[in-house]
């Protein structure tokens, strides 16, 4: 369905400029345009519908309260910048739920699903895959989501996470290794994954 001509001319960046002037209509337009996209991103991070709604709402409220946080002049796309806001909110929220630990420990921790067979049998492969991904440490999960599901290149995903490309590639590799080691994933793969010994 074709949009109104005025709306088609309003880029995200120009809408944010209007939001800076207190234009609620422009804000509503941004929400209408992107809330679904960022809800999906938030959901993939937290695995919970209610939390995903809260994360994306908080992110948009941050935009409403301080639209000048997005610097149009820097040249970064609005969606790229907003992905960073949403991702950081999701990571912060998850970390608040976990016991306090340094970043190395958080990245090293990976919950092993204790009831893998039960989940597989009762809920099917979709639930098993989701459970396995949700068990990843937050930054590994974020790297995986950005590269696999949000369509970002390694460079773009690294920029969103505020890390170098090599660090992002390391997160991706660790995420995949953790998933391959997860009993839930082993049950879904055709060939059994050979675990490296030694």
């Amino acid at each position: 369905m074709a949009k109104n001509a005025d709306q088609m001319d309003d880029s995200d960046e120009s809408l944010v400029v209007r939001v800076c002037e207190g234009d609620h209509q422009a804000f509503a337009q941004l929400v209408e345009r992107h809330s679904g996209l960022f809800y999906s991103a938030a959901y993939r991070m937290c695995g919970n519908a209610e939390e995903a709604e809260e994360i994306v709402q908080d992110a948009f409220l941050k935009l409403w309260e301080k639209p000048q946080s997005y610097d149009v002049g820097k040249g970064a796309k609005f969606t790229t910048w907003f992905y960073r806001v949403v991702t950081n909110l999701a990571i912060d929220r998850a970390r608040r739920k976990r016991p306090q630990a340094g970043p190395d420990v958080l990245d090293f921790m990976a919950d092993k699903a204790p009831l893998a067979d039960e989940i597989l049998v009762q809920n099917g492969r979709e639930a098993a895959l989701e459970a396995a991904i949700q068990s990843l440490p937050e930054r590994q999960k974020a790297a995986l989501n950005l590269c696999f599901y949000e369509g970002f290149s390694n460079k773009e995903a690294a920029e969103i996470l505020g890390i170098g490309v090599k660090a992002l590639e390391s997160l991706l590799m660790r995420a995949k290794t953790a998933l391959k080691d997860n009993p839930l994933i082993a049950g879904l793969l055709e060939k059994p994954v050979e675990k490296k010994t030694g």
């Binding site: 509503a28 993939r44 519908a49 709604e53 709402q57 991904i133």
Partner: peptide, 22 residues
């Protein structure tokens, strides 16, 4: 396997909720 992950369903009321909150 990862590509077969289910896409989240976006609630219809989401936009309205966010705009109302703002």
């Amino acid at each position: 396997l990862l590509k077969a992950r289910k896409k989240p369903e976006v609630p219809e009321y989401l936009s309205a909720r966010i705009v109302a909150a703002a």
